[in-house]
Design a protein around this nucleic acid. Structure first.
Lengths: 145, 145
DNA sequence: ACTTGCCCTAGAGTATTGTCGAGGGTTTAT
DNA sequence: ATAAACCCTCGACAATACTCTAGGGCAAGT
């Protein structure tokens, strides 16, 4: 079974443009061409493309994905390098997730404030403090309609 | 207490360029200027800037942060809009986190494979299958040194 | 007065990740 | 054999988020 670029676009949700862009960026060196120069995707290619999408969707840069694919193309001798690249990436994801969850807690704090029955009063008070601070420092008041 | 742009840059880790960029983008309408046209940050401004960083670090686009700040500038009447914006963002974060964790599982699967004692053999076999697939479809073999 | 180290704006430049149009060849069905 | 629907490359354009340069003003110490 083989697939045209359009078939792959339909299967993956990536646009044809994006697939060609990825190829241009060196992410698809494993995709063969037919006599007319058309890209021909095999099932194995789809599997690798899926891996590429996993890496992309977890935030890996195209340059790093290219490196990973280059290792894959070089065969089994590059297993240690692949391992290193992926585990570094894995840790980066986890670190970033943790950071996001921390920041999310502050967003939640704000949300909670806005949901208080006396939210209006709280926000008004906060605004008054900010304006007083400006006045105390002889600054113009930027909170004006 | 007030702070120069440099002091704020040092405190937040944002570059002076970035702070000026944020101002240009309408994220800092609350920052006053002194007689010489210099930006003067108050403690309240730093607090709001911190909120901006939270939103940015959780992936919110500058355009949306600008909207949030605009609501804040408009005073307590915009609490419902702020609530809607933040809770939409909150859900977007959670959805994305979930998607990333799913994709991470596939990365983990690969990592686990590379850590097997017979990883070399497994990868070699996979490569052989991919090459056979190309041959079976009369395609050139892209896996060559 | 002068040097140093800040501050400002406007606008150009950069990096990343696409997205699209022009111009042209291929395949398939009628 | 011709239209419709594909495919190709190349290169321009776009959105996002900075980053930096040029040109010039201000403030403090010597």
């Amino acid at each position: 079974m083989t697939y045209s670029i359009k078939a792959v676009a339909d299967k993956t949700g990536l646009s044809i443009y994006t697939l060609r862009f990825y190829d241009k960026q060196g992410l698809l060196p494993f995709v063969s061409r037919n006599a007319a120069g058309y890209r021909v995707f095999t099932d194995g290619d789809l599997h690798l493309l899926h891996t590429i999408c996993c890496l992309k969707d977890t935030g890996m840069k195209i340059a790093d994905i290219r490196q990973y694919i280059a290792y894959v193309m070089q065969g089994p001798t590059t297993i240690p390098q692949r391992q290193h690249l992926l585990s570094t990436h894995r840790q980066a994801i986890l670190d970033q997730q943790a950071k996001i969850m921390q920041n999310l807690q502050e967003v939640d704090f704000k949300l909670n404030l806005y949901r208080q029955p006396n939210a209006q009063a709280l926000v008004t008070a906060e605004l008054a403090v900010a304006q007083a601070e400006k006045r105390a420092n002889g600054l113009p008041n930027p909170f004006e309609k």
